[in-house]
Design a protein around this nucleic acid. Sequence first.
DNA 1: GATGAATGAGGCTTCATTCAT
DNA 2: AATGAATGAAGCCTCATTCAT
Lengths: 185, 185, 185, 185
Amino acid sequence: MGEVRPRDRESTRRRILEAARRLFAELGYEQVTMRLIAAEADANIALINRYFGAKRELFAEVLAQQGRFPGVIDVEEAGLPRALAEYVADRLSSDSGSPVVATLSRSSASPEIHGLIRDRIMSAILGPLESRLSGPDAQVRAGIATALILGTGTLRDLVGPDVMHPADREIVVERLTAVFTACLS
Amino acid sequence: MGEVRPRDRESTRRRILEAARRLFAELGYEQVTMRLIAAEADANIALINRYFGAKRELFAEVLAQQGRFPGVIDVEEAGLPRALAEYVADRLSSDSGSPVVATLSRSSASPEIHGLIRDRIMSAILGPLESRLSGPDAQVRAGIATALILGTGTLRDLVGPDVMHPADREIVVERLTAVFTACLS
Amino acid sequence: MGEVRPRDRESTRRRILEAARRLFAELGYEQVTMRLIAAEADANIALINRYFGAKRELFAEVLAQQGRFPGVIDVEEAGLPRALAEYVADRLSSDSGSPVVATLSRSSASPEIHGLIRDRIMSAILGPLESRLSGPDAQVRAGIATALILGTGTLRDLVGPDVMHPADREIVVERLTAVFTACLS
Amino acid sequence: MGEVRPRDRESTRRRILEAARRLFAELGYEQVTMRLIAAEADANIALINRYFGAKRELFAEVLAQQGRFPGVIDVEEAGLPRALAEYVADRLSSDSGSPVVATLSRSSASPEIHGLIRDRIMSAILGPLESRLSGPDAQVRAGIATALILGTGTLRDLVGPDVMHPADREIVVERLTAVFTACLS
DNA sequence: GATGAATGAGGCTTCATTCAT
DNA sequence: AATGAATGAAGCCTCATTCAT
């Protein structure tokens, strides 16, 4: 402690945004207080409002910055089931993985940001997924896959990283691949 | 005066519990206030605390009373995928369906009741499902199915009942049946 | 201190309303804080919001209860100038007089309640005044009288009760009567 | 560097003062924030404090610079009623007119600057007016005229520029002239 | 035993002002 | 000397819970 931090607007903004990103992803919108963000960012609480406006707007900014599902979707269609399966399996056991999904999933019950979440789900997960699919009923198939991705996160939050323990990761991935194949192709 | 009035007490208790059940299922733990429950039950607000203790304990009681997944799971194993698919498809388009699932899914982000939710997920959904499955990796397969069930609810909450519109219900059910088959058998 | 107050909703509501009436009239909307009202009413601050909603709504309630210009306007038209003159003269020297006028005058700069003030001015002062006047240009004449009534309050607030000291009250009344006569008849 | 730059300093000071003048006149003391002034003046916010001290002192400086009632009072006594009537009529319909009056009237409820306002009212309006009057009870007559001037502004703020619409301007001026005559001569 | 008034904690937001660069 | 980031106080409002009647 005691390390001097320069008075740097951009740096502070970044620290706040980063703290918010982490906390929203970990705890969900409702559980995160402005004070908590300020403490985590080691910044004054009033600065959050000055730089980002209301809590809701900060959340919007966090969502906007997180972009889409990183990497996962950008594989050729044939490899998509396995890619998603691996992503989901990792998330199940380690809570790493895309913070977008965590943020969205854990904040889904807050009416204040319902619209934001809805739009982001569509633009970051469901939309990209759907547009990658060929064949009939792409929307239905993408929807089911999205539901599985979201539900996986919820399940992990609730039951913990050992939901499917002591199963081998490979077994989980294979099962999930089969499931994603069933809905995506 | 001074006479015991067990009928009224029981009736009020029931009304409170019923109101709480409805509201928790519809709005999730966080969004439901004690006053809202009292108003919906047309009961005195202090009675909630008197009868059930804190909000958390009322929630516990609600969970305890809701039992398991009603009906859905109690079909022969061969029919399970389609039964689940129909359940999920209905929930997607109408928000009816088992209140247990809605309650759990919509309250998953509240740390205060994390333990309760976790236990209930296991005893009401994941457990029964797993015990119905024969073959290897029952836990993994039941877990995936559970994730899909939960995620479906979340997706519906976020995107609305038209997520998979304008698809025919039959198409949705068939897709879902294929998916559940892939993980359950 | 230490006198026990019964837990009486109506009584507390009344105390809050009375405290708000007093403070709004004395200090104006902006300067009155919820804490100040609570302290003055010897009530818990949260009760104000419970009973009246937001600060703005409490202010609306205060305005609604204060009714019109008490008594002053309800004289025959011929006596109106002198009645108003006496009212204004009293208000100049003692700050007693209608709290409606004080409340409105001292809260006129707060945009949050602009609409409320506007409506009240019209229904409590300008409207009644105008409807009592016969002859042409009633609106203009009533407007000028209203401006004089409001301005008198402002002047007293700013300069103090001795604005027109050491003039005899009778002199002030006579001058004011002449002025009101000039605009009302 | 290190060289004195009196031009910039003076220019910035002037811009701040001008912005403050405009905003205080338009919105009143309370509604004007330091940031608003800084933005309007396109100046650094800290410079306001550096150059003028606290907000209160900036306000004092603004008042000091605004001088007296411009022009209006400097007519011969016989023409005074009509001159004031025209001034007031214009202010009623267009909000143009002397910023001193607007500033004072719209800031009258702020205790922090009470003394400043009081002194300025006396030196800028009431005093000059009184000293122009011959005959008895000059203070009373000047006071009433001042009240009418202030009240007119308040009324306009509250009810809008159409208070006396659809009356012809000439009618309003005539009525006001009669009223001012009644109190000034 | 039943009622609902009262409480204290805590949430978000905004302001004038100060202090490090 | 000038800049603007940072601060602390204060405002309004809502909630679960307790306690007097």
